[in-house]
Design a binder for these strands. Sequence first.
DNA 1: ATGGCAACTCCAAGTTGA
Length: 257
Amino acid sequence: MKIATWNVNSLRVRLQQVMDWLGTHQPDVLCLQETKLQDDIFPIDVMTQAGYQPIFTGQKTYNGVALLGKNNGTDIHTALPGFDDPQKRLIAATYGDLRVICVYVPNGEHVGSEKYTYKLEWLTKLSAFLQQEQKRYRNIAVLGDFNIAPADRDVYDPQAWQGKILCSEAERQAFQQLLETGFVDSFHLFEQPEKVYTWWDYRMMAFRRNRGLRIDHILLSHEIAASCIAWQVDKEFRKLERPSDHAPVWVELTSTM
DNA sequence: ATGGCAACTCCAAGTTGA
């Protein structure tokens, strides 16, 4: 079983790339972030014709998340409970015995800004939601754009980024708090080379120079972490014309659906 | 110290992202 996450930075612009990626990789579930589409113009037919059932919650211009599954998802959540938030940043569904939670964590703008406060509050609410979900499900995967580089090794220039947005101590503590609710960062289940990233700035030829950050993550509950046999970031689609600034990330699980 | 790129939007200059 293969589950994946990709911040596509506009599904309208990246639709063909997404369909190509689905065709090539055949994931059981693909989580998308930054679809930037209202629900009434989501390309449902294109997805279903390719054998994927979409579940989505979107808005104009910003945010927007979706789940594309080979099977139908059930027990769908499209928001964090107890958090009145117009920004569409979370969608969850159950596929077989696996709970899949797709997140687009706020960027935070810069440390100390209103958006930074919102980011930390959002992460606190996410942590509470995950604790609730842990009571209902054993096998949980949380995938998405977390907008946090968990450690210095996840940053191309840790000194330049020290204490900055995506790398601040409070953000990293919030990420650790998520893990402490009962998850592992699947990246660390395997021996990894240095300089593995999932996002590269469009500017300054950052991708060609591998000046990136690892901010897209797949967290697995302990029960399924044991069945994870691969973690990959697919840099091929970052090399195409008009790429997303994020690359797809996926894991392979041995458990069946 | 700033902008650098890309996508979005009452179509065009400002906002947002990371």
